[in-house]
């Protein structure tokens, strides 16, 4: 009976989870994003992040960065350890704000570049 309840609860939980929903963020390498979207020139920030080793890490970082009003999109490459932020047209995002958001998500900024 205990095993039945265990399986039942887990099946129910899993059924109602949005596991199959589309991801908010694509996983293309950040360098590719810059070259493919020239219209966003000047609005791209590439941050190298230490400690970003799993999907949960990337999800956290995405959610925290997306809270910034100036952020249009966030794209992450776990392979390259890059976070690519596109800033909304006409708005700005300072290095300090990016660093604080990354720290707030639980990670460390290792480097930052603007394209």
């Amino acid at each position: 009976m205990k095993k039945l309840i265990t399986f039942g609860l887990t099946a129910l939980t899993f059924t109602f989870s949005p596991l199959a929903l589309a991801q908010e963020v694509e996983s293309r390498p950040a360098t590719e994003i810059v070259s493919m979207e020239p219209d966003k020139e000047g609005r791209i920030i590439q941050a190298t992040v230490n400690g970003m080793v799993c999907d949960f890490c990337a999800q956290s970082l995405t959610k925290v960065l997306m809270r910034e009003e100036a952020v249009e999109t966030v794209q992450i490459s776990l392979e390259a350890q890059f976070v690519t932020i596109t800033v909304k047209e006409g708005m700005s995002l300072s290095d300090e704000v990016v660093e604080k958001a990354i720290y707030w998500a639980g990670y460390d900024l290792a480097g930052i570049e603007r394209a």
């Binding site: 399986f7 887990t10 939980t13 899993f14 989870s17 949005p18 596991l19 929903l21 949960f56 999800q59």
Partner: peptide, 25 residues
């Protein structure tokens, strides 16, 4: 297994009990 916000673990222990863990953020 994990993907997106969900994590699922399936296993079976040496004392004949199943392991079924689920984490959702």
């Amino acid at each position: 297994f994990f993907k997106g916000n969900s994590l699922l673990e399936v296993g079976y222990s040496s004392n004949d009990e199943p392991l079924l863990n689920f984490v959702y953020r």
